[in-house]
Write a protein that binds this DNA or RNA. Sequence first.
DNA 1: CCCCAGTCCTGCGGGC
DNA 2: TGCCCGCAGGACTGGG
Length: 284
Amino acid sequence: MPELPEVETMRRGILDAVGSRVVDAAKIRCSRKPIEITPAQASFRRRVRGAMVAELARAGKRVVIWLDTDDAIVIEPRMTGLVLVVDPPTSEHLRWRLQLADGPIDEILYWDRRGLGNVRLFSREEYDSRFGLEKIGPDALEITADEFRERLGGSRREIKPALLDQRAVAGIGNLYASEILHVARIHPQRKCSAMTRQQWQSLVAATHSVLAEAIRYEGSTLGDGTYRNALNQAGGYQNMHRVYNRAEQLCPRCSAKIKRLVQTQRSTFFCAKCQTIARGPAGG
DNA sequence: CCCCAGTCCTGCGGGC
DNA sequence: TGCCCGCAGGACTGGG
């Protein structure tokens, strides 16, 4: 479930600890079925050893460690991956570690219970071809209303599944899609092509405010407790959720009952009273 | 081209 | 009590 706010929290969590540091080694450490780590250990280690960490970035839901060799270590946590600078929740799901030569922390750890995530090393050229604007859309924190409309306005899809399309906009996942649409007062089944300019404006404003607020709270840690920040601490935004996982509870804005529906095999939560299909944003 | 169902994986909780 | 099944949803693949 790590989405933009959780991945951004991971990035910030290792930022101070890492700084400009020399990489000592990259090691696979896995007692279970190995996750995807490319290239293989020997080659990976040869390419990163002795390199300096130049920049810590984020590409949608991926943490990117740029080295001064122009290689990028890209960590993709998918469902249950964590980037840590302290002891992980369990030792058996520790998948990979990046050892650093000096400074306050020894290593950056990658832990992943389900093992759907991956750690890959790319040259700048490979990185650009995979994560350039052609492949993943503008970052959700930066996208404008015009960009939203240009990329999705011609689509016959419903807006909620469209928000999950990383080629249209990067960083939104299933949880924040429901939260964003509730704040924007847009029904999740509204067709993209039927959205008004005012609704694209509401959508971009809600996208920015929800994600920025979630980053301030260091992301959402759900009931399974899986998501943690780099210090293995829970986030706080789950206490601020308006609709996600709150079916049958009351809408915090209008007190109607929150509903759940399934779109493209994913749960969606919304308030049918203040998120309308046929009309523009209520009260707007 | 556009879009969706199926796939990977583990742990948890419901039903019997 | 134990087992089985469904569900959670990241990104990718195959195919209609």
